[in-house]
Design a protein around this nucleic acid. Sequence first.
DNA 1: AACGAACCCAACCGCCCAACG
DNA 2: TCGTTGGGCGGTTGGGTTCGT
Length: 332
Amino acid sequence: MGRAPCCDKSGLKRGPWTPEEDQKLLDYIHQHGYGNWRTLPKNAGLQRCGKSCRLRWTNYLRPDIKRGRFSFEEEETIIQLHGILGNKWSAIAARLPGRTDNEIKNYWNTHIRKRLLRMGIDPVTHAPRLDLLDFSSIVNPCLFSNSASAQVNFSRLLGVDPPINPELLRLATSLLLSQHQNSNPAPQNFEESQLTNQQFQEIPGFTTVASTFVPFPNEAPVSQPKLVDEFPSNLTDFSSSSNSQISDLASSLTEDYVPFPTYDYDYRSSDQSLIDHSSTNSTFNSHDSYQSFGSSSPTYITSSTEDEREISYCSNMLKFDLPDLLDVNEFM
DNA sequence: AACGAACCCAACCGCCCAACG
DNA sequence: TCGTTGGGCGGTTGGGTTCGT
């Protein structure tokens, strides 16, 4: 059917907004609130179309917009959520308070995407791709300054860095499929299902994945590993998801929990040694870094360089042990 | 200092969909 | 049921800025 332009472009201003226009829009919204964007510019005395006003408000003028560089935690969250949701920028933005979909989209395209490509990771599938790999990032003296980093680069090469444990998703998928195929009543709860905590623990890497789900920054930090039985019921009670798709499961994963790595760098230390928060009960948590955004001179807890962030990404891979049977030398 | 290339990001474009009459 | 509208979304553009030579 097509759709007519949101407004008659003739006589309407386009391009960058002036401070005066911003002030008009702010004043109007403060007095009347937003909504009915089509009539808003006329009532506010703006020579703009409603859509332009809405975008200006949602992407720039909104008071809860967080400006400034993305923190490392935010960046990791974006990467992990992108692995689940794809280019659903608004869904990703919903999990990053103060960030807009446009901002995240831009940041992805200008920073993260390039970095993943440089690291040999397909930014679309999040799978390692040798044809994308910039080998200089592997033979980086900085990376090789610590053997663990070198190892994790190879482990990434070998494809053992799924943003979300594929075994978990595969397991959930098979569970759902089996429920469709099986006419027997579904178990009433997770404990009654065939999947036990023990079975989850037996999935390579899952124990770590489970232990790294932490509440969102504005929630109380969790220092103890999160156990399977602490998962939302819609995650663990597969009986209630008889008609759901695996995408629903993925959505559930991002609904209440955002996976953060168990390991990260102590940015305050000179040697960037790894900290195992699960064992040291460290007080560091993402909440700390988010709090800093409110200050007038934010002190982001973040890696200062692209390389440092790459190293940090690699460090997160330590949660996946390189199988002994995979001989790296074969790939040399 | 000058110039072009590369980068960044606000803003725009056009499609989609739910709500409504 | 269908057409219209408002609003949301992802993709793209273009101008300003930074970087490299």
